[in-house]
Simulated assay, not measured.
Amino acid sequence: MYAVNALEWLNLTRHGESTGNVASIAAHEAEREENGIAQRDADIPLSDAGREQAALLGRRLAALPEDERPALVLVSPYVRTRDTARIALDQLPYAPRVRVDERLRDRDQGVLEGLTWHGIRRRFPEEAERKRRLGKFYYRAPGGESWADLALRLRSLYHEQSGRVLVVTHDAIVVMTRYLVEELTEEQVMAVEKTPVANCSLSRWRRADGRLQPVAYNDTSFLTGASAR
């Protein structure tokens, strides 16, 4: 397992359901070329269901034993992640330190931003073919980032941390954290990525025998009654 300095507990959650998640699903089902999201990615807010999920996440965190509760919360700068953190932390009986870190932002899609897979194939067929040839892990859209690029961001971030940490971020960051911490191969992490990371799911690793060991991944058991996409 990946040795990360003095981290005792590493907890990751994806933001609650956003209005962008809802719009993207509807656009895909209708086979539209664009997702119809008006805001830039960083400004997309939570949906009502997403706010409910964030509150349930906070209650789950509040129920942790005191020696497992996060002392530091690292948050992506996007609106949907900052709001998820704020709502969740309002449920806690204590106030952990909170820090926004740009290395936790979502993966940049470059010129493909705002397009569905149908739109990419129709408007940028050469990019769809290049992605097929290179594979999802190493493919980088013009002006965007590959999955491998995310690993470079995250290696430096995690080596700076210690103690008990909660990260509020995006699905790709959760997947690539597992890649780093569990030292997965390209094939293994792309197999993991096929199962969507649910909104406000909780993934946890704890230090044992000098390494971070997996405790839970993509856990949604505490989200009973809330929508999770």
Rank of each mutant, 00 (worst) to 15 (best):
200 C>R: 05
190 M>V: 12
212 L>W: 07
169 T>W: 03
161 Q>V: 02
207 R>G: 02
198 A>M: 01
200 C>S: 10
206 R>E: 12
172 A>F: 06
184 L>Y: 05
199 N>Y: 09
165 V>L: 13
170 H>V: 12
169 T>C: 00
180 L>N: 12
193 E>G: 09
181 V>S: 13
171 D>P: 14
204 R>M: 12
172 A>R: 11
188 Q>M: 14
171 D>C: 12
201 S>K: 05
176 M>I: 02
193 E>M: 04
165 V>F: 10
186 E>W: 01
170 H>D: 11
167 V>R: 01
201 S>Q: 12
182 E>H: 08
202 L>W: 10
210 G>I: 01
177 T>C: 04
199 N>A: 10
212 L>S: 09
172 A>L: 09
168 V>W: 04
207 R>E: 05
197 V>Y: 10
190 M>K: 09
162 S>N: 08
200 C>M: 08
166 L>Q: 11
174 V>L: 03
165 V>C: 04
194 K>I: 04
191 A>Y: 11
195 T>L: 05
163 G>F: 00
202 L>N: 10
208 A>V: 08
201 S>E: 14
160 E>D: 13
167 V>L: 03
166 L>T: 09
184 L>W: 03
160 E>P: 05
211 R>A: 11
190 M>I: 13
180 L>S: 07
184 L>R: 10
161 Q>P: 04
205 W>M: 08
167 V>M: 03
179 Y>L: 11
184 L>F: 03
199 N>C: 02
179 Y>E: 04
180 L>K: 01
181 V>H: 02
177 T>Y: 00
172 A>M: 11
166 L>I: 07
206 R>C: 05
169 T>L: 00
208 A>M: 05
192 V>F: 15
196 P>A: 01
190 M>L: 15
187 E>G: 05
